[in-house]
Amino acid sequence: MKRSMKEFYYKLSKNKSALVGGYLIIILIIIAIVGPFLTTFDPVEPDYGAKLEGPSAEHWFGTDNHGRDIFTRIIHGLSITMTIGFFSTLLGGVTGVLVGIVSGYYGGKVDAVIMRLMDILLAFPGILLALALVSILGANTQNVILAVAISAIPTFARIVRGSTLATKNLEYIDAMKALGASDARIIFKHILPNISSPIIVQASLYIATAVLSASGLSFLGMGAQPPSPELGAILSDGRDYMWDAGHIALFPGLVIMLIVLAFNVLGDGMRDALDPKMNK
Rank of each mutant, 00 (worst) to 15 (best):
D42Q: 02
V160H: 12
T141K: 03
A18F: 01
I199L: 10
G92N: 09
D240N: 15
P46I: 12
I191R: 08
A233H: 05
E58M: 15
G35F: 07
I80W: 01
E7T: 03
V102C: 12
T209L: 08
K109G: 06
S151R: 13
I26M: 04
V144E: 10
G21C: 03
Y10F: 02
F71G: 03
I26E: 01
G49V: 05
D237F: 07
A132N: 00
G138D: 05
K6D: 03
P125R: 05
L128A: 12
I26D: 00
L52P: 03
G96F: 13
I136K: 03
L137V: 08
N65Y: 06
L266Y: 11
Y206G: 05
L146D: 01
A175K: 01
I27Q: 02
F188R: 02
L235V: 00
Y206F: 10
A203R: 07
L231Y: 07
F87P: 03
S204V: 10
G100Q: 11
A57V: 12
G96Y: 11
F156T: 01
F188S: 11
I114S: 11
A249T: 14
A181F: 12
E171G: 13
K189S: 07
A32W: 12
L98E: 11
L250Q: 10
V99E: 15
Q225L: 04
L231M: 02
M115E: 10
I120W: 02
I25Y: 00
R239S: 05
Y241Q: 08
R185C: 00
P43F: 10
P227Y: 14
G138Q: 01
L52T: 02
V113M: 14
T141R: 07
L192N: 10
A152V: 02
I70L: 11
T155E: 10
L220I: 09
P276L: 14
H247A: 01
R161I: 09
G93Y: 09
L192P: 05
Y105Q: 15
L165F: 03
K51G: 06
T40C: 01
L90F: 11
V97R: 06
R73C: 04
T81C: 09
L274N: 15
A262W: 11
A57N: 07
G246W: 14
L235N: 00
M278P: 14
I70R: 03
A184H: 03
V211R: 05
G108W: 04
G35E: 04
S215Q: 08
H66E: 13
Y172R: 05
L133P: 12
H66F: 15
L250G: 09
L78P: 14
L212N: 01
A130L: 02
I31S: 15
T40D: 07
G67F: 13
H190N: 08
S163T: 12
D64R: 05
L212S: 01
K6I: 01
S218H: 09
T95S: 13
A57D: 04
S204G: 02
V20M: 07
L266D: 06
T167L: 15
I200Y: 08
Q225A: 01
T164N: 12
H190V: 02
G126E: 14
